[in-house]
Amino acid sequence: MKPIHALSPAGKAFAAVALIEAATWAGLLLGMFLKYVTATTDLGVWLFGRLHGAAFMLYVGVSVVAGLRLRWPLWALLVALAAAVPPLATLPVEYWFRRRGLLSDS
């Protein structure tokens, strides 16, 4: 088993924002369920739509900065950016990058 490397500051920021982006995705999915399936309220879509929009933009920005600072290969940056589109995909990408050492300075 490959050891998990200590995270750099950019790696820590990427990991934190990946978690936030996934959490807002989960909230938005729950909000869409409440709005379109149960037809009880649209408050979840209203709130988490805004939060997720902000988290998405923050994730894209942090991914680019982390990619530049940590000298990711182009494929890694493209994978990180693509992970923002499908729901909750930032979590396995963050875990994979952490295991490969892409979130550490060494």
Rank of each mutant, 00 (worst) to 15 (best):
T90F: 09
R100K: 15
M57N: 02
V17A: 12
G101R: 14
D42W: 04
G44L: 09
F97K: 06
W72E: 11
L91N: 05
W25E: 08
A55F: 09
A16H: 02
T90W: 09
A83L: 12
H52D: 10
A82P: 02
H5R: 08
V79A: 14
Y59C: 05
G61A: 06
G27K: 07
T38S: 15
F33M: 15
S8P: 06
G27Q: 07
L78W: 10
V45K: 11
P73I: 04
R98I: 00
E21F: 09
R50Q: 13
V85E: 02
A13R: 14
W25Y: 10
L78A: 14
W75D: 13
G49I: 02
G53V: 12
W96K: 05
W75K: 15
A26F: 08
K35S: 08
S106T: 07
F14S: 03
P3G: 03
V85N: 03
T90P: 09
G27S: 07
D42F: 04
P3W: 02
A10V: 01
P86S: 09
I4W: 03
A15L: 13
W46E: 10
L68Q: 10
W96M: 13
A23L: 15
M32W: 02
Y95M: 13
K2S: 02
Y36R: 03
A82F: 10
P9W: 05
V64E: 00
E94H: 01
D42V: 01
A23R: 03
V60W: 11
L7N: 12
A55T: 07
A26P: 00
A22M: 09
P9Q: 01
D42P: 04
A84D: 09
E94N: 04
F97E: 08
S63V: 11
G44Y: 10
A16L: 15
M57P: 00
L30K: 04
S106P: 11
Y36H: 09
A13F: 08
L77C: 03
S104V: 06
W72R: 11
V79Y: 02
I20N: 04
V17R: 12
V93E: 01
G67E: 02
A76F: 06
S106L: 01
L77K: 04
S8N: 06
M1K: 06
D105R: 14
T41W: 07
Y36Q: 01
T90R: 10
L77P: 03
R71V: 00
S63F: 13
H5K: 07
G49M: 04
K12C: 00
